[in-house]
């Protein structure tokens, strides 16, 4: 570390090139970055090796039989089960139904907020509440709220003469309920990203459009939408990645049930690994998820952003969040 202190511009005593004008030497960089990178590398690679190893073997913790190599056997068995395809469908429901709905609703709310002048910050703060909460507490709050016997929602619906279902406990409504809770919790994130995008459009753009006689709808599609696209791409990719992480609300609200109806890939992986201790299959399933997530994310980036997601869009929400929120 002493190397960091050597006078400005002097050539290093280690015989390397003189320091660059950024003031940190090669060796200094290594010393500074080393511990963190080592930590991340060790705890990324080591467990990952276990995961790969498990996914190619008949690793079962509860059964004391010797572990043997099964090659792609775990993957083959998985692909043949209907439970795998069903859980893939549930994950797709979050990724391809919940996320687009979040984007749509988030866009509407952002446009609404952008049109409001008084109290925008207060509204935005309050609307952001769901995403600030621990998913586990969100799960409990909804479990209580939707309870068919003593929950307020069904009492209200019965009060106006409807016969509401048992939501999370009903085979038909369980998945839509989870999707709704996911939308409820994460639309605010989409909203705040898009609001930051809208706030970044200078008012004179709208004024110019108005002077040219462009209607509100025309202004939106021809001017606002293209300028919003990078922000939209950011929100889409973020929410797509996160849609694979849905676990806590399923664990609390339905436990994957009724039966296995609401098990997504993450929950099925958890169930295989820690419910049945079949770490071989569980590992294989988590690798499948990783591949799907990577391919899906790449596709979306290609689709929405054509090139890479522009940096400005990422810096944008961060820099403009204060303005927007």
């Amino acid at each position: 570390m002493a190397d960091l202190t050597i006078g400005y511009g002097k050539s290093s005593r280690w015989g390397r090139k003189p320091r660059r004008d950024d003031g940190v030497t090669e060796r200094g960089t290594l010393l500074l970055l080393g511990p963190a990178l080592l930590f991340l590398a060790v705890f990324a690679i080591w467990p990952f090796c276990y995961l790969i190893y498990a996914s190619f073997t008949s690793y079962q913790m509860a059964i004391p039989v010797p572990i043997h190599w099964v090659g792609l056997g775990n993957f083959q068995v998985l692909v043949k089960t209907t439970r795998f395809w069903h859980s893939l469908g549930v994950t797709a429901a979050f990724a391809l139904v919940s996320v687009p709905l979040q984007l749509l609703i988030g866009l509407c709310i952002a446009l609404l907020l952008n049109a409001v002048t008084r109290g925008r910050e207060v509204y935005a703060s309050l609307l952001l509440t769901p995403m600030m909460l621990a998913p586990i507490v969100v799960g409990f709050a909804w479990e209580l709220f939707l309870n068919p016997i003593y929950g307020p929602l069904n009492a209200l619906l019965k009060g106006i003469g409807l016969s509401p279902p048992a939501w999370a406990q009903s085979p038909v409504w369980a998945l839509p309920t989870l999707v709704a809770v996911d939308i409820w919790q994460w639309t605010p994130l989409v909203m705040v990203i898009l609001l930051a995008g809208l706030r970044s459009i200078p008012p004179r753009v709208y004024e110019a459009a108005k002077v040219d006689g462009s209607s509100a709808v025309q202004t939106f599609f021809n001017i606002v939408a293209p300028m919003l696209l990078p922000y939209f791409a950011v929100a889409f990719v973020l929410r797509f990645i996160d849609s694979f992480k849905v676990f806590d609300i399923i664990y609390i609200l339905t436990r994957g049930g009724p039966g296995t109806i609401t098990q997504n890939l993450a929950y099925y992986t958890y169930d295989l690994g820690f419910g049945r201790f079949q770490f071989g299959r569980s590992g294989a399933l988590s690798i499948i998820q990783l591949l799907l997530l990577t391919i899906g994310t790449m596709l979306i980036i290609k689709l929405v952003a054509k090139r890479n997601v522009p940096t400005a869009a990422v810096a944008g929400p961060a820099a403009n969040a204060k303005e927007g929120a």
């Binding site: 467990p47 276990y50 995961l51 498990a54 988590s286």
Partner: peptide, 22 residues
């Protein structure tokens, strides 16, 4: 590379961690 570690769905590292911690 550093940030991409955060994209991992937690269920993926958690199995590896579990086996390693055992």
């Amino acid at each position: 590379t550093i940030l991409s570690l955060r994209m991992l769905p937690p269920i993926v590292p958690v199995i590896g961690f579990y086996l390693m911690f055992q």
